[in-house]
Design a protein around this nucleic acid. Structure first.
Length: 535
DNA sequence: CCCGCGTTGAAAT
DNA sequence: TCAACGCGGG
């Protein structure tokens, strides 16, 4: 995660501090890092979605730390991750693959009765789901803690906020574990904050201003610094073989111009340089500089730093790598925590632990479905209909119940994703998903309510449906893995939606509706439609 | 000199 | 999983 070896390299600029230094200030929090740490104490419960209070320990952990800040008169501003950006997809898939295999291993250990061994492995398998984030959001609301869900990367949002004045919603520092914040140009970062408030602080001005320190950044600006980070290898782009943080630094320091560094690199490493490295490099730098962030003032998604005509030209106006555009009403719904940024479904009121609806049980397995599983499935099976222009929402909550569906059915579902992916990116896919399928053989004994697994299928799907001029809504029958219908959704057709959905409900038990709205070429759209009509 | 690989110990309660 | 450390090869 983050920039390889950057933290170690920047050691001379990092000072131990106590959080009380920021008394009276607003401080941003990368929600993911605390959620993840908190999840360690209950990783098995989260992976298995098991019953009990222990599962919500991660919430206690988080709120403990919030209380610590409040104790020192600091105003916390919690920032959540939103959707995934395209260039991070391979990194994400890789992480998913690892977690899945750890989960499998853990299940095997559990079967043997080795609980200790299993929980060790579950710790490596934990994922923070939007549902978990939403549980936290509900608590933050009742506690009057400010929060925002970024359209994409929380890091970008935090760096943006760190460059704003406090009276405009800005923050004085960011608490995180992720060195990416430096590449984004965050002004002050606190790493490794412990439960007492001790941490390590990095101030960006200190880096650029200091005279007599080991690596000197006096002739650097933010762009060169970001370029150095990308050269060293980041989540968006692996480094050229043989190039680490030290060489990246020395090249940037020597040539003080990223284009020159690239041409030298091309010359020196022509055998090991990927064909499209230059393009990918420019895109990666652009993500760190111009990422899409939510501007609470205008209630719109904007660029962290405005785009220049120069840049637009060099990218041929192609901005999809920053993630699809998001219309204001949706951006606001996401930012305020009302819309799941991954599935684009409304968060269910019932997902809070207190009040759970009595589900209409359509039981196929002989086992009684546990309350948690029900809560989860209600959330996942709620249909949201909205237009992109107004936050007009109509929700049909299907009280279906998650069945003990054998894994093989999900495998079929995955096959659709593979096919779809091949159509979208014929050259780029080399069997990542196929591998997943072959690994997926054994029907596990887990209750098949693992949010982790299901979530990821959603992500794969949404990632692979790129950009469509109109809003396309797809109804997928998860049980049969058939795509039931595809409609182009316009303002008028919104009203007729619930009936359509209700009709489908009669045939299938567990439907999912996916939507995606953004811009792209006509041909891409047609290939999607052709694909669906063939199925 | 420096990258890249392998090892180890800590993380949450 | 990740940082910290040490070692061997370029």
């Amino acid at each position: 995660m983050g920039i390889k070896d950057l933290l170690r390299y920047m050691k001379p600029f990092i000072e131990p501090i106590h959080i009380k230094k920021y008394a009276g200030k607003r401080v941003g929090i990368d929600a993911y890092s605390w959620l993840h740490k908190g999840a360690y104490s209950c990783s098995m419960e989260i992976c298995l979605n098991s019953k009990g209070d222990k599962k919500s320990r991660y919430l206690q952990y988080f709120m403990h730390r919030i209380d610590l800040l409040r104790h020192y008169k600091i105003t916390p501003v919690v920032v959540f991750d939103g959707g995934n950006i395209p260039c991070k997809a391979t990194t994400e898939q890789e992480r998913y693959r690892k977690r899945k295999s750890y989960c499998d291993l853990a299940m095997a250990k559990l079967k043997e009765g080795d609980v200790t061994g299993a929980s060790e492995l579950f710790q490596r398998a934990v994922t923070i789901t939007p549902s978990m984030a939403h549980q936290l959001i509900q608590i933050l609301r009742t506690e009057n803690i400010e929060f925002v869900v970024a359209p994409y990367e929380a890091d970008a949002q935090l760096a943006y906020l760190s460059n704003l004045e406090a009276d405009k919603g800005g923050i004085a520092a960011v608490i995180t574990e992720d060195s990416d914040l430096m590449a984004y140009g965050c002004r002050a970062i606190i790493f490794k904050m412990d439960r007492y408030g001790n941490g390590e602080e990095m101030v960006l001005d200190r880096v650029f201003d200091s005279v007599a320190r080991a690596p000197s950044f006096q002739n650097f600006d933010k762009e060169l610094f970001t370029g150095m980070c990308v050269l060293a290898g980041c989540d968006f782009l692996p480094s050229v073989p043989g190039i680490g943080i030290a060489r990246a630094y020395s090249m940037v320091a020597k040539y003080r111009n990223l284009d020159r560094v690239l041409s030298v690199l091309k010359f020196e490493k022509r055998n090991q340089m990927p064909e499209d490295y230059t393009k990918s490099f420019r895109e990666a730098v652009a993500v760190f500089q111009h990422a899409r962030i939510y501007d609470a003032d205008t209630k719109r998604v904007q660029h962290m730093k405005p785009l220049t005509d120069d840049l637009l030209q060099s990218l041929d106006g192609e901005l999809d790598f920053l993630g699809p555009e998001i219309p204001p009403s949706i951006a606001t719904a996401i930012a305020e925590g009302n819309l799941d940024p991954v599935t684009m479904e409304a968060f269910d009121h019932f997902s809070s632990h207190e009040s759970q609806p009595e589900p209409t049980v359509t039981q196929t397995s002989n086992e009684i479905v546990k309350p948690e599983a029900t809560a989860q499935s209600t959330e996942e099976s709620c249909f949201t209909i909205f237009s992109s222009h107004e936050t007009r929402e109509e929700r049909v909550t299907a009280s279906t119940v998650m069945e003990q569906r054998p894994v093989i059915e999900e495998t079929k579902y995955l096959n659709e994703a593979v096919a779809l992916q091949k159509i979208m990116f014929p050259s780029e896919v080399h069997g990542m998903l196929e591998n997943k399928i072959t690994q997926d053989e054994t029907p596990l004994e887990i209750p098949d309510n693992n949010p982790f697994k299901k979530r990821k299928l959603n992500e794969i799907y949404l990632d692979q449906i790129p950009s469509i001029t109109e809003q396309i809504s797809v109804v997928v029958d998860v049980d049969n893995s058939d795509i039931m219908c595809v409609t182009l959704e316009s303002q008028e057709s919104v009203d007729s939606k619930p009936n359509k959905v209700a009709d489908r409900k009669a045939i299938s038990k567990n439907e999912k509706r996916k939507r995606s709205d953004c811009k792209s070429s006509e041909s891409k759209k047609n290939s999607i439609l052709n694909f669906f009509s063939r199925v």
